[in-house]
C-alpha cells in the first residue's frame, strides 16, 4: 500500500472513531450487550460449575469471560458492517470509492475503526471481570495470545460483514450479517465444556471451527493451553477465506456503481 492509500485508510478509520465518539447511541449498544451477557452468564449461571463433569480450572467467571470477549470481538466486526451498509445506502461510500486509489484500503480503514471500538469494549469487559475477581492462571504470553486470538476473530467478523454489506448495500441486510455469526458463536460450548453437551448440539459444536478457538482461549486464560498452534492456524485460515470473500464483495459493489 502506498502513501496515498494509507492516508485513505487512516482517514476513514479516523472518521469512524469520531462518528462513534459523537454518537453515543452507536457506542453503547455494542458495549452493553457483551456486558449484559457477561453479567447474566457469569453471575446467573455460576452454579453450572457444580454440574458433574465440569472440569475447567479457571472458574466460571473466567469460563464466561472468554466467551463474551470473543463474542464482543465478532459482533464488533458485524456492527461495523452495519456502518458500511449505511454508508452505501446514503452515498457516502461512493465518495470513498472515488477517493481511494487502492480500494481495498477502505476495508482496512473500516477494520481499524472496528478495532478501536472493540478495544473500548474489551477494556471495559476486562475491568469488570477483574473487579469481579476473575483469576488469571495464564502467563503474560498466554494472555497476549488470548487477546491476539480475539483480534483475529474481530477481523473475521468485519470481513464477513463487509462482504455482505457490499453485496447488498442496504441496512436491511443487517439480520443476514448477524444471524450466521450468532449461530456460529452459540453452536459451541457456551455454558458448559464440550464434553457435557449432548445430542445434536454436541455434534454441531464438535465440527464448529469456532469451538476450538473458544476452548483455546479458555485454555490460555487458565494457563492450560492445549492446541495453540492449530487454533491460530484456524483463525488465520478464516481470515484468509473471508478476506477473499470481502474483496470479491468490494468488486461487486464497484461494478454496481
Amino acid at each position: 500500500m502506498n502513501g496515498r492509500g494509507l492516508s485513505v485508510t487512516l482517514g476513514l478509520a479516523h472518521r469512524q472513531m469520531t462518528l462513534l465518539i459523537k454518537n453515543p447511541s452507536l457506542l453503547f449498544p455494542p458495549m452493553l450487550f457483551p456486558l449484559m451477557n457477561f453479567l447474566a452468564f457469569a453471575g446467573g449461571l455460576s452454579r453450572l460449575r457444580h454440574v458433574p463433569g465440569f472440569n475447567y480450572p479457571g472458574g466460571y467467571t473466567a469460563f464466561q469471560f472468554v466467551f463474551v470477549l470473543l463474542q464482543s470481538a465478532a459482533f464488533g466486526g458485524v456492527f461495523m458492517g452495519f456502518g458500511i451498509a449505511r454508508d452505501f445506502e446514503n452515498g457516502f461510500a461512493r465518495r470513498l470509492l472515488v477517493a481511494a486509489p487502492h480500494r481495498s484500503g477502505l476495508i482496512a480503514g473500516y477494520w481499524l475503526g472496528a478495532v478501536f471500538r472493540w478495544s473500548l469494549v474489551a477494556t471495559m469487559l476486562t475491568i469488570v471481570a477483574l473487579i469481579a475477581g476473575m483469576p488469571i492462571g495464564g502467563s503474560g504470553v498466554d494472555i497476549f495470545g488470548l487477546y491476539a486470538l480475539a483480534l483475529l476473530v474481530n477481523l473475521v467478523g468485519i470481513l464477513w460483514a463487509a462482504g455482505i454489506a457490499m453485496r447488498f448495500r442496504t441496512v436491511q441486510a443487517g439480520p443476514l450479517m448477524q444471524t450466521p455469526v450468532f449461530m456460529l458463536l452459540f453452536l459451541a460450548p457456551v455454558y458448559v465444556p464440550l464434553a457435557l453437551l449432548q445430542g445434536w448440539i454436541h455434534t454441531l459444536a464438535s465440527v464448529n471451527p469456532y469451538t476450538l478457538l473458544l476452548e483455546e482461549g479458555r485454555g490460555l486464560l487458565a494457563g492450560t493451553p492445549l492446541h495453540t498452534a492449530s487454533a491460530f492456524l484456524i483463525a488465520f485460515g478464516l481470515v484468509g477465506f473471508f478476506l477473499v470473500w470481502s474483496l470479491r464483495g468490494l468488486r461487486i459493489a464497484e461494478r454496481a456503481g
Binding site: 449461571l45 452454579r47 453450572l48 457444580h50 454440574v51 458433574p52 463433569g53 465440569f54 449461530m183 452459540f186 453452536l187 460450548p189 457456551v190 455454558y191 458448559v192 457435557l196 453437551l197 449432548q198 445430542g199 445434536w200 448440539i201
Partner: peptide
C-alpha cells in the same frame, strides 16, 4: 433451540 440444548446440563443440578 441453542439454549435449551446448551444448558441442558443445568437440569442435573
Amino acid at each position: 433451540a441453542v439454549n435449551s440444548n446448551g444448558l441442558r446440563a443445568a437440569t442435573h443440578l
